[in-house]
Each structure stands twice: as structure tokens, then as C-alpha cells.
Deep mutational scan, measured.
Amino acid sequence: SEEKKKAKERLERLGASSELARELLDRANGNAEKAERLLRKLL
């Protein structure tokens, strides 16, 4: 979806690899905010 694509791009801008961004979104069930929080914990 367009929303998921935007979320993935945002995670990548924050420093996630394409693969990591995809994994985070999967774990967050597509929830962009939750995926971002997970990423911030990792960085």
C-alpha cells in the first residue's frame, strides 16, 4: 500500500536498511509509528 511504502521510506531515512525497514513494519503489523519506535530503540 502507499502508506506502507511511505513508512518504509521514512524508516530508511532514519537509518534502517531496506531489509530492516521491511522487518520492522512486519513486526509492527504495518503500524508506521510502532515500527519507528522499534527502530529508535535499535539505533
Rank of each mutant, 00 (worst) to 15 (best):
1 S>K: 11
40 R>G: 10
27 R>E: 09
4 K>P: 09
28 A>P: 00
39 L>Q: 00
32 A>Q: 08
33 E>W: 06
34 K>I: 15
38 L>Y: 04
36 E>N: 03
40 R>L: 08
29 N>R: 09
22 R>P: 01
23 E>K: 10
28 A>H: 04
11 L>V: 01
17 S>N: 07
30 G>T: 01
15 G>I: 04
32 A>I: 15
7 A>Q: 07
9 E>S: 09
35 A>R: 00
37 R>I: 11
6 K>W: 06
27 R>W: 15
5 K>F: 08
7 A>S: 08
30 G>L: 03
37 R>W: 07
18 S>I: 07
43 L>T: 06
2 E>V: 11
4 K>G: 14
30 G>P: 00
5 K>L: 12
26 D>A: 11
18 S>M: 07
8 K>T: 14
23 E>T: 09
25 L>E: 01
15 G>H: 01
13 R>A: 14
9 E>Q: 11
37 R>M: 11
3 E>V: 11
18 S>K: 11
16 A>G: 03
19 E>D: 12
6 K>I: 12
10 R>M: 10
11 L>D: 00
17 S>W: 06
36 E>P: 00
20 L>I: 07
19 E>G: 07
33 E>P: 04
42 L>V: 08
36 E>I: 10
2 E>G: 11
38 L>S: 06
16 A>W: 00
12 E>L: 08
20 L>P: 00
23 E>L: 11
43 L>Y: 05
1 S>A: 13
18 S>R: 09
24 L>R: 00
20 L>S: 02
42 L>D: 04
8 K>D: 04
12 E>Y: 01
26 D>K: 09
1 S>W: 12
14 L>K: 04
17 S>V: 03
7 A>R: 05
38 L>E: 14
41 K>V: 11
5 K>N: 13
17 S>R: 03
34 K>R: 12
13 R>D: 07
14 L>G: 03
42 L>S: 05
1 S>V: 13
27 R>N: 07
29 N>V: 05
13 R>Q: 12
28 A>K: 01
7 A>N: 08
31 N>E: 06
32 A>Y: 15
1 S>H: 13
25 L>H: 02
12 E>A: 06
43 L>Q: 11
4 K>S: 14
33 E>L: 09
21 A>W: 10
14 L>Q: 06
26 D>W: 06
38 L>I: 13
11 L>H: 01
37 R>A: 15
14 L>N: 03
1 S>C: 12
26 D>L: 08
30 G>V: 01
9 E>K: 09
3 E>N: 11
21 A>Y: 05
40 R>D: 15
35 A>K: 01
10 R>K: 09
41 K>G: 12
21 A>E: 01
1 S>M: 13
43 L>P: 02
14 L>D: 01
14 L>P: 00
4 K>T: 14
13 R>T: 09
10 R>V: 07
17 S>M: 03
24 L>A: 02
16 A>H: 02
24 L>T: 01
25 L>D: 01
10 R>P: 03
29 N>F: 09
24 L>S: 01
9 E>D: 10
1 S>L: 12
19 E>I: 06
29 N>Y: 08
23 E>W: 07
24 L>G: 00
35 A>I: 04
16 A>D: 02
33 E>F: 06
21 A>I: 09
12 E>W: 00
33 E>Y: 06
13 R>V: 07
2 E>C: 10
43 L>V: 07
37 R>G: 13
17 S>A: 05
32 A>R: 06
22 R>G: 11
37 R>V: 07
35 A>Q: 00
6 K>L: 12
36 E>M: 07
34 K>M: 15
40 R>S: 11
32 A>P: 10
13 R>C: 12
39 L>A: 02
